[in-house]
Design a protein around this nucleic acid. Structure first.
Lengths: 113, 113
DNA sequence: CACGATGTATCGTAATACGACGCATCGAGG
DNA sequence: CCTCGATGCGTCGTATTACGATACATCGTG
């Protein structure tokens, strides 16, 4: 992987973990919240992405610091420095792309067809 | 299709055509320029995207107004109102995602591991 | 003469997303 | 009591998309 641009689902997983450590199900809910329902990850999508992110060292499992009354099943993930870098680079790319698009999409005067 | 989020390659094709009518090869060059080489469309990618965009009515072929000395092979495309809407919606989504990411990626103070 | 740029297009493969399913527990409502 | 939705993990098969390779043709430059 390690390739930019990142796909939207993968990017949102990264951003979700930038905040704080989260477990799978929490990521799904968080991404849905943050994007106002625009991005809904299915479990198939999420766990595939997690597998790839782990393999690339962009996230790591965080076993420590679980509240005592936590659900046993939960597996928490944490963004690594490499993952944070990737997310930052992609964010910059997104900002450039959006600015580009704004400029290009500005209402035109009389397109002489 | 008609689904948001848009993939990066498809989005850039839309933006490229927002400016002015372009033919395939010109789109490839334009996207590469605008993104400073971040996004390089292969011909396979481009013509597949064009096919889908035409089918969805987001772009249309523009046969009129070709300079007299133009290359005969060129096929020009134009963004339709529907395509422009889609690009605008996606741009807004990108802006929101980028702002979200910036906030979440802000350097944290002592993450007590 | 060969190679890169310009130009369109298709084909097969790889990467990715995604819905369906499976399994398990808990709490609420009928 | 029973069912259903939420919470939680995961896999499997399929569809969608991206993408490199290939094909073909012309033009200009080294």
């Amino acid at each position: 992987m390690a390739e930019l641009p990142l796909t939207a689902p993968l990017f949102h997983v990264l951003v979700s973990l930038a905040d704080e450590d989260r477990h799978g199900y929490a990521i799904i809910k968080d991404v849905e919240d943050r994007t106002s329902g625009d991005v809904r990850l299915s479990t198939g999508t999420l766990y595939g992405i997690i597998k790839r992110l782990l393999a690339d060292g962009w996230i790591a499992e965080a076993r420590s610091r679980r509240p005592t009354d936590d659900d046993e099943r939960r597996r928490y993930y944490r963004l690594t420095p490499a993952g944070r870098d990737a997310a930052l680079t992609e964010t910059a790319r997104l900002e450039r792309a959006a600015a580009q698009a704004r400029a290009a999409l500005r209402p035109r005067r009389a397109q002489t067809t």
